[in-house]
Design a protein around this nucleic acid. Structure first.
Length: 615
RNA sequence: GGACCCGUAGCUCAGCUGGAUAGAGCGUUGCCCUCCGAAGGCAAAGGUCGAAGGUUCGAAUCCUUUCGGGUCCGCCA
């Protein structure tokens, strides 16, 4: 899988030996054979369950097979010692020379160390953020954005061909409400401009012009209810006035035509998306593909999907059972067009059209997924907020139905983040002037750290220090604190220390070819073992779709490095740079350079910049 | 009523998709730090993995039941 993964290499050796020992077993008998670092380091460098896994099939007692396997493994040049243990494990102690060679492998490969062919170039579509284009990015979108972006990097490193996608919900009631709100702001801006004079006397507009032109005045004048009213629409409205003047006001000064509203809507959505992209850019998130819900509808994708499902006999008109427990007040049985989701593992069939015949959001989502499948993706991944958990099964059912089980849909659920300050949750209240938008959060952190880049890195790292589906508190003070308690700092500090040593040593070249025999201290070997585990960490994290594992690995790696550094403080012979020992110095500098490389490689996955020095 | 997520040390959380004596950080306790690479270091204590059954060589991990916390539940996106 990864050419750098010594665990995969030794596993392959183990499987080959087992196949030789047990020629009568079919090849797939060895699928569950593993080669892992043992939980207890005293057991050695690696352990395999190979004997236990195949013992039953081979009708042999596991310890006996383990003994045979151990004997053969101990003959390998990489292996210093192999011994059967426990219920049938084989523990391996590796030749130190083989371990040290991993340092050279890192330096030869650079940050590509750990790249894997696991994904085999499989096309994966990763959709994340997908916030409604009705306003700027909210802090609530932050975690999904970071998790999605890091997952994209992770999958790319593991050999998948990843497309980073954003689905724009630019159809439906939400954006219609946005259009109305924009139209209100437009009228306000228009009446304040010279162009406003010519229309100020028209019909209902006259009353509005004479009023304070507030939200309620607009609602009263045109008989609509506004859902939004954000100040962020003011510049959008001014741009509308600049482009269209008074042309968007109907002759009677009343309700604008559907065409006008559609125009306003499209304009507002475009502006909102531009703002959202800017917000995402602050976080270092850049998606490549933006799919428009409205575009899909216009392309007839919904009808296509419907026809496809209908041809498979998966659509029918029916009445759903009422939900159990407390009934909604206005519940009454109504026939709707339903998709047979229950045939694909969902609890009940799901409505595609409302009782009035119009499409549900679910139906548009079906169109979206058909569009993905048509583009040839073998795997679809979503990062969703945990409040969408109930939606997972039905979408998986749809994808199964549309692609006849050939395309897989995975959903990563991101739990809510509470922003904390001084141990208290920060209320997300606009009135209180606290964080509402992602930009607010980043700008506040930038003030604390001194730069937007540092704020971005602090947010990204911290967001990845928890499993996505676990709730987390984001402690503002902790996120920028320069202490061991802050994992982001702890890892950055390790990299900065590495760079500091290499700068002091004059940035030596050709470390990849340095002789490494001088690396004998247990702390040095422990660091090398950690580095050697990087490739398998990448693969395991990618398979599990869990980018947080990278953060934990880096924390452990940084810990190993700090331990070594601290030993050098107590024992001068363990310092990296020793003028009297040029050979040892080069070996240690190679190890330091390799450590820095792996840290950078991990930070790259997380989308965090590795710093050269701490300030 | 049902679905999904979570429950692991005092606290915040990992636990490599079923492996050996369950780990880390914080906190606590003890020792070290006038100078040398100290925005610290070393070490110890701390657990019936929410509970009860089951599956098998083997379970924190899988299954069933149950308790607690969260999210959600037809025509909202």
């Amino acid at each position: 899988m990864s050419t750098h993964d010594i665990f995969a290499a030794l596993r392959a050796r183990t499987v080959a030996i087992l196949a030789e020992l047990l020629p009568e077993l079919p090849a797939d008998s060895f699928a569950r054979v593993q080669m892992e670092p043992p939980r207890d380091a005293s057991h050695g460098d690696m352990a395999t369950n190979g004997a236990m896994v195949v013992a039953k099939l081979a009708k042999l007692p596991p310890p006996k097979l383990a003994a045979q396997l151990a004997e053969r493994l101990s003959a390998l040049p990489e292996v210093a010692e192999a011994a059967p243990a426990g219920p049938g494990f084989v523990n391996l102690r590796l030749e130190e020379g083989f371990l040290r060679a991993q340092v050279g492998a890192v330096l030869a490969a650079g940050e590509a160390f750990g790249d894997s062919t696991l994904g085999a170039g499989v096309k994966v579509d990763l959709e994340y953020v997908s916030a409604n284009p009705t306003g700027p990015m909210h802090v609530g979108h932050c975690r999904g954005a970071v998790v999605g972006d890091a997952l994209a990097n992770l999958l790319a490193k593991a050999g998948y061909a990843v497309t980073k996608e954003y689905y724009i919900n630019d159809a439906g009631a939400q954006v219609q409400a946005l259009a109305w709100a924009t139209y209100w702001r437009y009228l306000v801006a228009l009446l304040a401009s010279p162009a406003g004079a010519e229309v100020a006397g028209r019909g209902p507009l006259a009353g509005f012009a004479a009023s304070a032109r507030g939200r309620e005045d607009f609602e009263a004048a045109l008989g609509v209810t506004l859902q939004y009213g954000g100040d962020y629409l003011v510049p959008v409205a001014e741009a509308l006035v600049a482009r269209h003047g008074a042309a968007l006001v109907p002759a009677d000064g009343g309700t604008p035509t559907a065409e006008t509203l559609a125009l306003v809507q499209a304009f507002a959505v475009a502006e909102m998306m531009a703002a959202i992209r800017e917000d995402l850019a602050l976080l270092g998130v850049k998606q490549e593909v933006f799919v428009s819900e409205l575009g899909l509808i216009k392309d007839g994708k919904l009808e296509q999907a419907e026809a496809l499902l209908d041809a498979k006999g998966l659509i029918y008109t029916g009445v759903l059972e009422p939900p159990k427990g407390k009934l909604p007040d206005d519940w009454e049985p109504r026939p709707q067009q339903l998709f047979r989701a229950s045939q694909f593992g969902d609890e009940v069939d799901r409505p595609m059209r409302k009782s009035d015949g119009s499409g549900t959001y679910f139906a548009n989502d079906i169109a979206n997924h058909l569009h993905k499948i048509e583009r040839g993706f073998a795997e679809l991944i979503h990062v969703w907020g945990a409040d969408h958990a109930g939606y997972v099964k039905r979408m998986q059912a749809v994808v199964k139905a549309l692609a006849d089980g050939q395309v897989k849909l995975d959903v990563v659920l991101a739990q809510i983040v509470r922003v904390m300050r001084n141990g208290e949750p920060v209320r997300m209240s606009k009135r209180a002037g606290t964080f509402v938008t992602l930009r607010d959060l980043l700008e506040d952190l930038a003030e604390m750290t001194g730069s937007m880049a540092a704020a971005r890195d602090a947010v990204r790292f911290t967001m990845l220090t928890r499993k996505a589906d676990a709730q987390m508190d984001f402690d503002l003070d902790r996120a920028v604190e320069q202490s061991r308690e802050n994992p982001a700092f702890y890892v950055q500090y390790a990299h900065a220390r590495c760079r500091s040593v290499l700068r002091t040593a004059g940035e030596p070249a050709d470390l990849a070819s340095a002789p490494l025999e001088a690396l004998t201290d247990p702390a040095e070997l422990a660091l090398i073992r950690r580095i050697a585990a990087w490739p398998r960490t990448v693969e395991a994290a990618a398979l599990a779709r869990e980018p947080h594992r990278i953060a934990f690995f880096l924390h452990d790696l940084a810990g190993d490095f700090h331990v070594l550094w601290n030993k050098g403080r107590e024992d001068a012979t363990l310092r990296f740079i020793r003028d009297d020992e040029p050979e040892a110095t080069r070996a240690r500098l190679a190890l330091v350079a390799a450590t820095a490389t792996v840290i950078r490689s991990g930070l790259q996955v997380m989308g965090v910049e590795a710093v050269q020095e701490m300030r």
